[in-house]
Amino acid sequence: MRPDDWHLTHDLDGFLARAGDFLRSRPALHTVPLTVTETLRTRGTNLYGADAPVFGRLERAGEVHATFFRTPPHRLNLTALSPEQADTLAVRLAGLGAPLPGVSAEHGTATAFAGAWRRHAGATPVLRERLRLYRLGTLTPPNPFPAGRSRITGDPDRGRLALWNGEFAVAVGEAPPGDADPWTEARLAGRHFTFWETPDGTPVAMAGVTPQTAGQVRVGPVYTPAHLRGHGYAGAVTVEVSRAARAAGAREVVLFADLSNATSNALYLRIGYLPVADFTVYDFPVSRDR
């Protein structure tokens, strides 16, 4: 395996022409690259920032074995790699001379790449979070359901959605940047949101879902403001968006949960989600003296 087996491009359409079948072959595990590339395809490749996204594929003898994408300033996102493949990618990217803020991938892949990046770029990886990917099995609504109903959001709800998405970002340690409008556009782009409302019509929780791509839909973010938790609202809205995704024909309904949050993991198991794989996110802090 050689570093030049990795083919890098800014051309999204060209990347999907070569790697699309590979991504669609494992829609649950490839949910993030599938949904992000679809959002970029439909909303524009400058959605996440001024710098052009970078896409890469590992190809030998005409067959794609792995891919990555990065939408600056965000982390590198990888499909599953062997340690050797991770090393060759680190060599290739380190040779470009540009720092990376971090990596997100299945646990073994992320850890292998983080070690390779330390060796070849001199950056010390810092564990940021561990996530578990779940796939919906038999949907099991909570009993009793909290009083109220679900409601699909519309334009008048944009302010609350922006506020709650911002609060969610802060809660998981990713505070929004100071320039709120581009951040809000990127955060809300390509997702449909549903509120859970109390009987008097007060929104008390939200859940987002990605559009269906390659037969899969990803639920998230799921958020209840801190003062409203403990009433079953998050479970109710997650059940409703999961049910709607299945009714719309999604073969795979998936979501991520932070492994440090025992409450959310237990909730998803109760309502019928089954573990698929663990993912890990590392940051690569840049030393002040570099």
Rank of each mutant, 00 (worst) to 15 (best):
A244R: 10
T109P: 09
R57Q: 00
E129I: 02
R75K: 10
V204F: 12
L131W: 08
H30P: 13
A205W: 03
A214R: 00
L96N: 12
D278N: 15
G62F: 08
A19N: 10
G115I: 01
D179W: 12
G159W: 00
V254Y: 05
M1R: 09
G49S: 02
R135M: 08
T45G: 00
V237H: 03
P225L: 07
A169V: 07
A205T: 03
F55N: 02
E63D: 08
M206N: 03
P285E: 05
A226E: 14
D181R: 15
S264R: 10
A90F: 08
G230K: 02
E197K: 14
F195D: 02
T280F: 05
R70S: 08
E252Y: 12
A61H: 11
P177N: 09
G49R: 03
L12N: 06
G235M: 08
W196E: 09
F15K: 03
G56Q: 01
T238M: 05
F145T: 11
R57E: 04
F279W: 15
D181G: 09
P142S: 07
F22H: 14
L47E: 02
G56T: 00
F256Y: 14
H7R: 15
R290W: 13
A80W: 10
A61V: 03
V32Y: 10
W183Q: 12
H7Y: 13
T79S: 15
F15I: 04
Q212A: 10
A112G: 01
Q212H: 03
L47P: 00
V91S: 01
T280K: 06
T37S: 14
Y134T: 03
N143L: 15
L23E: 06
A236G: 06
A169M: 10
H10A: 12
P72D: 13
Y282R: 06
Y233M: 06
V91A: 08
